[in-house]
C-alpha cells in the first residue's frame, strides 16, 4: 500500500517559492487503478514524481508497505525505484536510436539478467502488447499507438508493482487511446497498481478511483 501523509513539496526558483503539493494525504491499495486529474500546474506530475521517487518531498511522510520511502537517501531511492516503480510517458520516451526490442530490454540491463533470459522476457512482453513483429523497427518507423505499446511493454518487463503513467493517451487519437486504456486494465488485472495522470474524463472513468487535485490539494477522492 502507498500511504502519503500530509506531504508538501515546495520548489524554489530564483528565490520564489512555489507550493506544488500542499499537505496531501492519500492511501492507495495494492492493485488499484487510479486516475489523477487536475488543471495544469495543480501538482499532478509532482505527485507522480514523488510516488516514483524521481523527486523528494519537502515535508510529510511517504510509506510503501513497511518501508518509509521519505526517509530513504538518494541511492536507496534509486534502488526503490528500480525495484518497485515503472513509468509510461505521454510522448513515450523511447530511445530513438534503439530498436523496439532494445527499448523494451533497457530496464533489464541494470538488473543483471542473462541475455538468454532477457530475450525470453522481452519477447513475452512484446507478444503481450501485440508488437512482436515490430521488434526490429525503430520508434520513428512505427505509429504513436505502437510506440505507446512499446513503452508499456518496457514498463512491464521489470515486473514492478507500481506503474505510473503520465498522460499515456495524451498524444494518441481516441481509438488508439481506448486500446491503450484496455491494455492498462489488463496490466491492472495482473495485480499491478496503476496510477494514471490524465485530463481526459473518459480515460479517468475507466479507472477504479478518481483523484482530483487543485493548487496542490486533493479536492475529490472518489471511487
Amino acid at each position: 500500500m502507498i500511504r502519503l501523509n500530509n506531504v508538501t513539496k515546495i520548489y524554489e526558483t530564483q528565490g520564489i517559492k512555489t507550493n506544488a503539493l500542499n499537505g496531501i494525504s492519500l492511501e492507495i491499495e495494492d492493485g488499484e487503478m487510479i486516475a489523477v486529474m487536475g488543471p495544469s500546474g495543480s501538482g499532478k506530475s509532482t505527485l507522480l514524481n514523488i510516488i516514483g521517487c524521481m523527486d523528494t518531498l519537502t515535508s510529510g511522510k511517504y510509506e510503501y508497505n513497511e518501508c518509509e520511502v521519505s526517509a530513504l537517501k538518494q541511492g536507496q531511492l534509486n534502488a526503490f525505484r528500480k525495484k518497485h516503480v515503472s513509468f509510461v510517458f505521454q510522448n513515450f520516451a523511447l530511445m530513438k536510436d534503439y530498436t523496439v526490442y532494445e527499448n523494451v530490454e533497457l530496464p533489464l540491463l541494470p538488473r543483471n539478467i542473462s541475455k538468454k533470459e532477457r530475450k525470453k522476457i522481452v519477447n513475452e512482453k512484446l507478444e503481450l502488447m501485440g508488437i512482436s513483429e515490430l521488434a526490429k523497427k525503430f520508434p520513428t518507423q512505427i505509429s504513436g499507438g505502437q510506440q505507446q505499446r512499446c513503452a508499456i511493454a518496457r514498463a512491464l518487463v521489470a515486473e514492478n508493482d507500481i506503474i505510473l503513467a503520465d498522460e499515456p493517451t495524451g498524444a494518441l487519437d481516441s481509438k488508439t487511446g481506448d486500446d491503450i486504456m484496455e491494455i492498462f486494465k489488463q496490466v491492472n488485472k495482473m495485480g499491478k497498481t496503476v496510477i494514471i495522470i490524465t485530463h481526459d474524463q473518459k480515460v479517468a472513468e475507466k479507472c477504479n478511483r478518481i483523484i482530483k487535485i487543485e493548487d496542490g490539494k486533493i479536492k475529490i477522492n472518489a471511487k
Binding site: 534509486n78 515503472s86 520516451a93 530511445m95 530496464p107 541494470p110 521489470a158
Partner: peptide, 16 residues
Amino acid sequence: MNVYGIMYANGVTRKD
C-alpha cells in the same frame, strides 16, 4: 538529457 531521464526512469543509477 532526455536519454538520461529515460535511463533513470528505468533503473539506471548515477553510478552507472
